[in-house]
């Protein structure tokens, strides 16, 4: 499904909690479609966006569908560049162990599971963001 072989760097910046608004869910839908177009996709989680990746989300009580397991499937779509803003975790009293583990399988190394998560400072994230062709924030 690539467009005449053009591959651009797309970054999706997630800054909001899941469930309170629909942005996290509908952002994920765009991310999956972008991967289907064989584009170079990265995801950034910053500010309240880090809550999207929390383990143990239980949504029965709010009557909404729990879509948190979709993040674990990103590796199957060859999305393996996930950047998490460390300062946003620190500000919220969270650590990386509060978040889901996200992995991808490396075909070249007998499908060894490798982590997709990169814990980065804001300065690093800023640099990565400025190297993108298309940045979308929901």
């Amino acid at each position: 499904m690539s467009e005449e072989g053009i591959v651009k760097k797309f970054m999706y910046v997630n800054r909001k909690c899941p469930y309170g608004t629909i942005y996290a869910l509908e952002s994920l839908e765009v991310v999956l479609i972008t991967a289907a177009f064989d584009q170079d996709v990265s995801l950034a989680f910053t500010d309240d966006g880090v809550y999207q990746l929390m383990k143990d989300q239980k949504t029965d009580g709010i009557g909404m569908k729990n879509f948190s397991s979709t993040y674990a499937a990103l590796g199957d779509y060859e999305i393996k560049k996930i950047f998490i803003d460390k300062e946003s975790l620190d500000e919220r009293g969270l650590s990386i162990s509060d978040l889901q583990e996200l992995v991808w399988e490396d075909e070249d190394e007998d499908y060894a599971e490798k982590s997709s998560i990169n814990l980065v400072s804001r300065a690093e994230l800023s640099k990565i963001m400025s190297q993108q062709d298309v940045v979308m924030s929901f």
Binding site: R15, S130, Q132, D133, V135, S137, F138
Partner: peptide, 8 residues
């Protein structure tokens, strides 16, 4: 500029 980020 080369790209645009909207802080929504």
């Amino acid at each position: 500029h080369d790209s645009v980020q909207s802080w929504l």
